[in-house]
Each structure stands twice: as structure tokens, then as C-alpha cells.
Amino acid sequence: MTLIITGVTAFAVTVIYMLMRRHSVDRCNSSHLGMLMLMYWGATLMWCVDGIASLAEDNPFVTLSDPAVVADDSALGLLVVFAGFFAWSAYLMVEALRARQRVAATSRNI
């Protein structure tokens, strides 16, 4: 389930990124949506590697038969999605502070 949740999220963010890029490149670059997209695709790749490692140990790639495992995997997938969103939000705040400092520094030099 973690692979499915992160994969769907990565695909959704990619679609949003492509639509924003088509309509406004400046707005897309200022939101750093590409970074969020790459974070989710990285998480999806990580879960794919985990699934391949499970196959190497003769376990199933994805376990959907046990409800407890599905619930745990779903919670982990949602945690990864929220953690990625919060990390991206923190990055946006740091970038906004840096931009504000650059503007303040150039206005003092004039």
C-alpha cells in the first residue's frame, strides 16, 4: 500500500506540475513544485526497491490479504506523503526568507 499511495501522489503532483508549467513557467518555478514531485518519485522508487527485496526473499511484492498489514502500510504511506509535504513547505519558507534577505541587502546597498 505504501507503494500505491506514494505512486498515486507522485503521479498527481506530476500532473499538477505539468499543467502549471504549461500555463505559467514563472509561477511553477517559484513554487518549487518540481522538488516535491521528485521527492515523491524518490519515495515511490524506494518502495519499488523494497518490493523487489521482498521478492528476493520469497515474499509477495505487495501484501493485500491481511487487513492489519494493509492498515499499517496505508498509515506509513500517508505518513510519507505528509512528511514530504511538510519538508517541501519548510523548504518554501526558507527560500522565502532568503529572498527577503536578498531584497533587503540590495535595497541597503542602493
Rank of each mutant, 00 (worst) to 15 (best):
S74G: 05
H32L: 15
S65A: 14
S31Y: 14
M37T: 02
F61K: 06
V49A: 11
T63F: 15
A71V: 03
P60R: 13
T63W: 14
S107P: 00
L64G: 00
C28R: 13
T106R: 11
A90M: 14
V62W: 09
A75R: 14
G84H: 03
C48F: 14
A71P: 00
L19E: 05
N29I: 10
I5K: 01
I52G: 01
D72N: 06
S54N: 11
I5L: 09
A104H: 05
T44K: 03
P67H: 07
S74T: 12
M93Y: 10
A12K: 05
S54H: 09
T63C: 11
Y91E: 07
L97Y: 08
I110G: 02
V94W: 09
A104V: 02
T9A: 15
V25P: 00
A68I: 15
F85I: 12
A83N: 03
Q101A: 13
A83R: 10
F61Q: 03
L3Q: 04
V80H: 03
A90G: 09
I5G: 01
L36C: 04
N59F: 15
V70A: 06
A71R: 12
L55S: 05
Y40K: 01
G7I: 05
G84D: 08
M35Y: 13
T14L: 14
A104Q: 10
C48T: 12
A96S: 06
L55N: 04
M37Q: 12
V49I: 15
Y91R: 09
I16A: 08
V13Y: 04
L45C: 08
A56F: 10
A75E: 06
N59K: 15
C48V: 15
L45E: 03
I4H: 03
L79D: 04
W47S: 08
C28N: 08
L64S: 00
R100N: 06
S24T: 02
R22Q: 08
F61L: 13
S31P: 00
C28H: 03
A10K: 02
R98S: 01
R98N: 02
R98E: 04
